[in-house]
């Protein structure tokens, strides 16, 4: 299985508003509001953490099994990639290769 380091796309603008994170795309028209769990995952998508490491942190932070956390992280990353606000990098950000 390939190692994936999800990273927020440079073009997006995001702000924490209360418990949620609101992500706005560069066109200023499309937006995504992330709930508390998704916001936690989003903030870890800095290009330096692999998907399984993010799932592990989710498991430590919230009352969710590691298996469920892995599924949640995987699904969310897929969703945010499709939404074009996350990139999947094969390497860490400090030596990034797209």
């Amino acid at each position: 299985m390939k190692t994936i380091y999800p990273v927020q796309k440079d073009e997006v603008i995001w702000r924490r508003i209360g418990d949620a994170i609101v992500v706005i795309k560069e066109d200023g028209l499309s937006s995504h509001t992330l709930n508390k769990t998704a916001s936690f995952i989003w903030e870890l998508c800095d290009g330096n953490l692999e998907i399984n490491e993010i799932a592990k942190r989710l498991n430590e932070r919230f009352d969710v099994s590691l298996e469920d956390a892995q599924a949640d992280v995987h699904n969310l990353i897929e969703e945010l990639t499709t939404a074009d606000i996350i990139k999947k990098s094969k390497g860490k950000k400090d030596k990034i290769r797209y």
């Binding site: 702000r15 508003i17 209360g18 949620a20 609101v22 937006s31 509001t33």
Partner: peptide
């Protein structure tokens, strides 16, 4: 309005 919705709509 919840804050996230208010934030987006006001922006």
């Amino acid at each position: 309005l919840d804050k996230a919705e208010a934030y987006l709509r006001f922006m």
